[in-house]
């Protein structure tokens, strides 16, 4: 299985994603530089990592969506390739319209870095297959513009299609305002596209996937992707 980690100018979780894929899961992993001609068809998984692509200037992801590599990522996604966008990667995916909605400033107006519980909402996808139904994962968030927004029509479509994969919740899975760290609509922390092959989330699964820590909840997401690809189940 071949993994690619995209490097935009300003990406800063690229090394972390690379480390987890290559050194923890022992997968063949390559860097994908943002400019120049490239063919992504050799990859099974393309990861858009966290960070501040193009300094987050204008809006996070606004400039990155027009980089050369994103044209290829769109083509790759359209042909069914697995795309995982984490944090800034999620922001790029919504700006590029590969995922619906938008990510705006946290309602706290502050950057938030801490481990928060999220509830898994749909375990029948290729990004969550290893998670137990309605299980609660503890995953770090680290963002300033992570408040998910979508209009009511868009929201009801997401819900209808079961595209919401993760919601911020309390330690026992309570999805309430009290446990919404950034003001996201419906406590949404991560979503998938209709086709089931593009997933974006604000929490950082790569930050709880290395055995150096006791919390390994993030591994479930990577294992889900790997198992679905290795068992040949199409998305």
């Amino acid at each position: 299985m071949n993994c690619g980690v995209v490097v935009f100018p300003g990406s800063n979780c690229d090394h972390d994603c690379f480390h987890i894929l290559k050194h923890v899961f022992k997968l063949h992993t390559e860097w994908i530089w943002h400019k120049g001609d490239m063919d992504l068809s050799r990859f099974d998984l393309v990861v858009l990592p966290g960070g501040y692509s193009y300094g987050d200037y204008l809006r996070p992801g606004a400039i990155a969506q027009f980089s050369t590599v994103m044209k290829e990522v769109v083509r790759f996604a359209e042909s069914g390739g697995r795309v995982l966008g984490i944090c800034n990667g999620f922001q790029v995916l919504v700006e590029a319209k590969l995922l619906p909605g938008a990510l705006i400033q946290n309602n706290t107006q502050k950057f938030i870095c801490k481990t928060v519980p999220v509830r898994v909402e749909n375990t029948s996808t290729s990004f969550t297959g290893e998670c137990a139904d309605e299980s609660v994962l503890n995953i770090p968030i680290a963002h300033h513009q992570g408040s998910y927004f979508i209009d009511p029509d868009g929201l009801s479509q997401l819900e209808e299609n079961r595209q919401v994969l993760f919601r911020y919740c309390g330690p026992a899975g309570e999805v309430t305002d009290e446990f919404n760290p950034n003001g996201s609509v419906g406590n949404i922390a991560g979503i998938i596209n209709k086709g089931g092959n593009v997933m974006g989330l604000m929490p950082h699964p790569e930050r709880c996937a290395d055995p150096a820590w006791s919390n390994l909840d993030g591994q479930l997401i990577f294992k889900s992707i790997i198992n679905s690809l290795q068992s040949g189940v199409s998305a």
């Binding site: 400033q105 309602n107 706290t108 107006q109 927004f149 003001g183």
Partner: peptide, 13 residues
Amino acid sequence: TFKNGVLDPQGKA
């Protein structure tokens, strides 16, 4: 500017 209906935390503050 933000569209109506989108929370503008800075404006609110």
